[in-house]
Amino acid sequence: MSEHVQKPIVFEDDHAEPASVASSTLTFLFLAGLACLAMMIGFTDLGPAKVWVSLGVASVQGLVLTLFFMDLRHADKLTWLTAMAAVFWTFLLFLFTLTDYLTRHYYAF
């Protein structure tokens, strides 16, 4: 009976060693480089494309930050599911709300 009790219970094992100093430094330098790029975009006149370009840079930055600094790349499926849920539900919020703002002036009758 008692040997059952002492069985370790870990359903989703997400254990991983923290990133090495070299890897963290590299990530930081890459993020800082992208920040420089974001600044350069901010100080140039790209017209309507500017917001999309700068959001693209921000997304890459965010992705690198999440994957490497927040160590999502070593995380288990559950953590990935959690992170994806956040992205997906934010997407839903934007999708329907902005659809309203972009289509409200079309009349059905």
Partner: peptide
């Protein structure tokens, strides 16, 4: 409430 009509249909 004034929401877009087509969005209303989707919903």
């Amino acid at each position: 409430s004034g929401q877009g009509v087509y969005l209303g249909m989707v919903f």
